[in-house]
Design a protein around this nucleic acid. Sequence first.
DNA 1: AAGTTCTGTTTAATATCATAGACATGCGGG
DNA 2: CCCGCATGTCTATGATATTAAACAGAACTT
Lengths: 182, 182
Amino acid sequence: MVNDVSARLKAVRLMHGLSQRELAKRAGVTNGMISLIEQGRVSPSVASLKKVLDGLPMQLAEFFTMDPASTPQVFYASKELVELGKDAVSLRLVAAHRPGRRMALLHEVYAPGADTGSEMLSHAGEEGGIVVSGRIEVTVGAQTQVLGPGDAYYFSSGVPHRFRNRGRERCEIISAATPPTL
Amino acid sequence: MVNDVSARLKAVRLMHGLSQRELAKRAGVTNGMISLIEQGRVSPSVASLKKVLDGLPMQLAEFFTMDPASTPQVFYASKELVELGKDAVSLRLVAAHRPGRRMALLHEVYAPGADTGSEMLSHAGEEGGIVVSGRIEVTVGAQTQVLGPGDAYYFSSGVPHRFRNRGRERCEIISAATPPTL
DNA sequence: AAGTTCTGTTTAATATCATAGACATGCGGG
DNA sequence: CCCGCATGTCTATGATATTAAACAGAACTT
């Protein structure tokens, strides 16, 4: 991973198709400063870097998290979904083969009786989803709710959570998680 | 989200049970500097902050990613979706009011003829989606494809892109983007 | 070819940061 | 009570970052 601020900044700037002057103008700094940073001739203060990134806009966290080397620029579509389980819960992962994905986008199908288990899941990041069909019982922390078509959820993945299909029909959900756990 | 370096640094230092002087010694900086940073009286250079974090040790990415206030623990669900447009394209955003979200999760409905416009959209981050019903023509960079139910896409948002519903039925998509643009 | 407009780079003056060391406070033991 | 040793804060000085403006090259117009 390139931890060099200069390379990262240049990469993100170019990804946005901006010139040094354009970015500088948006960010409210001088073009010279951007030049110096990108040449690695100065180490900007956090305040300055934040100001620069505000011009994109991009947050500091994303800036340091991202991998400037990979912008595969690819367009993954249709049939590339991948089956991950054939049991009660079936998952199809979008863009599974894409290196350095920042999200996991899933098509989940819960058969009647399906359950992610009583040892509640917990991991870093955030996740959310929208119910497409059927009904699902979602437990997050101390809260439990039954969601139907069109309903949605969103929570920090660190909070223990569990999904159960207690109905007779299968339940379809489309969900996303960042950072990707799959 | 607390984007204040001072609060974050103090939080992580205390989490590690270190005094300003201890941390300063490990990091190879002066205690005074840590004091000034934690008081918010200076904005350290990225180089200096990195040096300080090396004493823990912790990476810049973690530092800015972590939530010093720790886990708001909220569980957004169901009816909290928000209508963003009533025209040809209608959007419902999950957890719209959640501060510091890391993703935008959307339920999008394209009426027949709906089009995101010929000035192609372009912004930072990554996005993906799965088609729930109907058909949609997706153009990303130089590629164009028509996607139907179950099909999916995933790409870097920096690449210009466009969505058009050229059919007679409406098209439903569930999509996610990080970082959130809405 | 001269003019215009874009690109990124460089420089001298200024603003900000980082240091070393002094300073004040608090706590526990002799 | 006073000493030793922690804690975090403050200040003067030197180092570094930032600015504004000049500079040089490439592409395009006239």
